[in-house]
Amino acid sequence: MIRLVDVHKSFGSNHVLSGVNLEVAQGQSMVIIGGSGTGKSVLLKCILGLITPDTGEIYVDGSDVTTTPREAFLAQFGMLFQGGALFDSLPVWQNVAFRLLRGQLKKSKQEAREIAIEKLRRVGLGPNVADLLPAELSGGMQKRVGLARAIATNPKIIFFDEPTTGLDPIMAGVINDLIREIVVDMGATTMTITHDMTSVNTIADQVAMLHGGKVRWVGPRSQVFDSDDAYVRQFVSGSPEGPIETLR
């Protein structure tokens, strides 16, 4: 479904991705873990074409992402951004229905609003928030609206960039459960970036660890907590002692 072959990306002298190879099967929930600044977000942005890799190939459904028509390609995707990335000037329902109000998937305003309210309900928000502006919502509610926007058009592939960052443990648990529920119900292929091992436990089918610009370890969720790899062990345990350098 998604295949990355020897993907490299540098920003000046900073080699963020140094030959990433990864495969995500259809309907699979892949969670990518790794320290801050190891290129997890860059990796997702390379797949989406927001950042152009220096070298390497990326295939989605067997098609090279650089040659697929952009609009049709992006129509397959939904993405939940780390900070929500909701449009400040638009009310909540128009944020959720953004894609349904314009472009190839355009629907009537009434229909788009109904779908938006249904998606909001799906993530546990009532119709009373539909006409609020994003600034009037709490961080957790903004994440939920971002989640509703990501699933508004029932995409085949959904990316979640640190979905629980900045949330309290209870809200983080709610978001994790929602993501798992949506993934199972929709049968979507998903990639999630997180540092939160609770998220890994709830969301993941497969886990990949990025370190030093490469995929250091990849395997099923059941093995990540018992991995023999010293890097994975250190990351999972959150220990400052180990092969991953820490600044103190």
Binding site: L50, L74, F81, G83, A85, F87, F98, R102, G103
Partner: peptide
Amino acid sequence: ATMKVTEQIDALVTLST
């Protein structure tokens, strides 16, 4: 610029806009 730093521009692109 605020849209850029809060990833709203990236969000626009991913929403095929």
